[in-house]
Simulated scan of single mutants.
Amino acid sequence: MRTEVFDRYQVNFGVVLASETKNTPINRYKEIVTNLSIKLYSEYGINSPSYENIDELKPVEIDADIKHILESLLQEPIDKLDITPFQCATLKTVGFTALQDILSAKEEELQKAYGIGPKRARKIYNIAFNATIEYISG
């Protein structure tokens, strides 16, 4: 998933630039790049207000084919995530080998891996979550 995600963003960025009619693609490119900011990224940790009503969620019935696809996606190895080889190796030493392992774990469990603190645990979880959502959304 590591290069696949990056390639996908490149293609999407190319489509945005190619469809530009008001400005030249180079001007739109400059506008996008100059407005990029690390402050725009959202991180959802265990205390995020986004999870306040999580207990009220109701389970959804899943079609058998979709369920099979989702189960196979969750079994993908963590090697495909956009994390460093060191992070991948340390996560494997404490038992995180598949995407499902990370997504079903709490941040505290991810922190059992060497060099993974609260912030990095949240980031790794978000990377796994976003990779899954991106695959599902096509």
Rank of each mutant, 00 (worst) to 15 (best):
L40G: 08
L99I: 08
E134G: 08
I127K: 07
G14W: 13
Y114S: 02
K106Q: 10
I127G: 01
L57R: 10
D63N: 09
I62P: 01
G117I: 11
I66P: 00
P85D: 00
I124Y: 07
N126G: 08
A98M: 15
K92N: 01
K92P: 00
E43C: 08
D63L: 14
S42M: 14
Y135V: 09
S48L: 08
S104T: 10
I124V: 11
L40Y: 13
Q100F: 14
S19Q: 09
L81P: 00
K119M: 11
G117L: 08
F6Y: 12
E76Q: 05
R120W: 12
R8F: 07
K106I: 09
S42R: 15
K67M: 09
A64K: 13
V11T: 13
N47L: 15
N27A: 09
F6P: 03
T97C: 13
Y41F: 15
S50K: 15
A121R: 07
K22S: 04
I124E: 00
L70T: 08
T93C: 03
L103D: 01
V11C: 06
A128V: 04
Q75L: 09
I66S: 05
P85Y: 07
I46R: 09
L36G: 02
A98P: 05
L74C: 00
I46Q: 08
I46L: 07
S19P: 04
G95Y: 15
R120E: 07
P118G: 09
E43N: 10
S37T: 03
L103S: 01
K112P: 01
S104I: 10
V94E: 01
G45H: 06
Q75E: 10
A128L: 03
A64H: 12
F13K: 01
V5K: 10
L40N: 12
T90F: 15
I133W: 15
I136H: 01
Q75Y: 11
I26Y: 10
P118I: 14
N53W: 08
E43R: 15
N23P: 04
I38D: 06
N12T: 10
T132Q: 02
E20M: 00
D82G: 05
E43H: 15
R8I: 08
I62G: 00
N126Y: 12
V5T: 03
A113F: 09
F6S: 04
R8C: 04
T24V: 13
N35L: 14
A121C: 05
S19N: 11
N35D: 03
D65V: 10
I78P: 02
A131H: 07
E108C: 02
K58T: 07
Y44P: 02
Y135I: 10
G138Q: 09
L91D: 03
D82S: 08
N53K: 14
L81C: 05
S42N: 14
L99G: 00
F129T: 03
E56P: 06
K123Q: 07
K30G: 05
G45S: 05
N27M: 12
E61M: 11
K92R: 06
Q75F: 11
S137R: 12
G117D: 12
A113C: 04
E107I: 12
E109K: 06
I62L: 08
A18F: 02
I136D: 01
L57N: 05
N35C: 07
L57I: 09
